[in-house]
């Protein structure tokens, strides 16, 4: 197990290094950064000044290694637009994105676990088909549009929930639901498939032969085994949700990391953009490692 974890850690570091390289290349794609930073009305002298000030006159390789060297120590550079440390900008916005992501994940699990179990227990009945249909509908739902519809319905017409901003926990309900929609189809299907497989297994026959209660058979014996892949995918889904929250943060005006990235893209603030890409990638890799660890906790055979 330890060996496995070390291997995973090495892969994670390699992934982080590759993403760093890609993020660097990405921000240099637009050609002359100095021109875009200086703005449309800048004179040639202004552009040269910007080029010098941001070190853009140096060779690309030296810019790259300079960035990598500092990023490793946690220094992600300085924002051109906000005139602040990128690391503190991200740290400031991260709690909102994390809260949103976790809210989405909790809602997704609260919906998909019961639905998946129900569908599995009632396999091939109308209920099962309805659940599978719900998963398909969820998969086809454009998240930003759902967000707007919820805003009109629950925010404006019913007035139950605040429309945008981050003042209270109520502000996270609608964005959380919208974000959850992206994970519900996969989690429901996986729960259903896992439960169907578990319920058909020999150890469930044993549990029934032991005369255990239905609740114990379903929740203690079947779900425990069916949950193993679900937990792994849930962690990965959280990673996707954090990455995908950019759209929802924009819809609901939640000033999280996604919103920051969106603003920075509009402002050609490339140190922020490349740092957010890097941070989200590192979080994703960390979450997949966490999933491996949780699997080992849930499945004694992996220990």
């Amino acid at each position: 197990m330890l060996q496995f974890l070390v291997r995973r850690l090495i892969v994670a570091l390699l992934v982080a290094a590759t993403v760093m390289t890609l993020a660097f290349i990405l921000t240099r794609l637009s050609g002359d950064l100095a021109v875009s930073i200086a703005g449309p009305n800048a004179t040639q002298e202004d552009i040269e000044l910007v080029r010098k000030a941001y070190g853009l006159d140096r060779p690309l390789t030296s810019q790259f290694f300079d960035w990598v060297g500092r990023a490793v120590t946690g220094d992600l550079g300085e924002s051109y637009f906000f005139k602040a440390r990128v690391s503190s900008l991200i740290a400031e916005r991260m709690p909102i994105t994390i809260t949103l992501g976790l809210t989405g994940l909790v809602i997704a699990l609260l919906v998909s676990l019961p639905l998946g179990i129900l569908a599995a227990v009632r396999e091939n009945t109308t209920l099962d088909r309805v659940v599978q249909m719900v998963a398909l509908l969820g998969q086809a739902m454009p998240s930003f549009w759902l967000g707007l519809i919820l805003m009109i319905t629950f925010g404006l017409q019913l007035g139950w929930l605040p429309i945008s901003g981050t003042g209270s926990w109520q502000h996270y309900v609608m964005p959380g639901i919208v974000l959850a929609f992206s994970a519900i189809p996969a989690l429901t299907r996986l729960t259903r498939a896992g439960m169907i497989q578990a319920m058909g297994s020999d150890y469930i026959r044993t549990a029934r032969a032991k005369g255990l209660s239905r609740a114990s058979i379903l929740l203690k014996h079947a779900l425990r085994n069916a949950a193993i892949p679900v937990v792994a995918i849930a962690a990965v889904q959280l990673g996707f949700m954090l990455g995908g929250s950019i759209v929802i943060e924009q819809v609901f005006a939640l000033h999280g990391v996604g919103f920051l990235a969106w603003e920075s893209i509009g402002k050609n603030d490339f140190p922020v953009v490349q740092a957010v890409v890097l941070v989200l990638a590192v979080i994703y890799v960390a979450l997949t490692m966490l999933a491996d660890l949780m699997n080992a906790v849930l499945d004694p055979r992996l220990r």
Binding site: S201, D202, T206, R224, N225, L298, R301
Partner: peptide, 12 residues
């Protein structure tokens, strides 16, 4: 049962 390898729950 006939299948001792799979008749016990692997998680407990």
């Amino acid at each position: 049962f006939q299948e001792p390898m799979t008749s016990l729950n692997p998680a407990y």
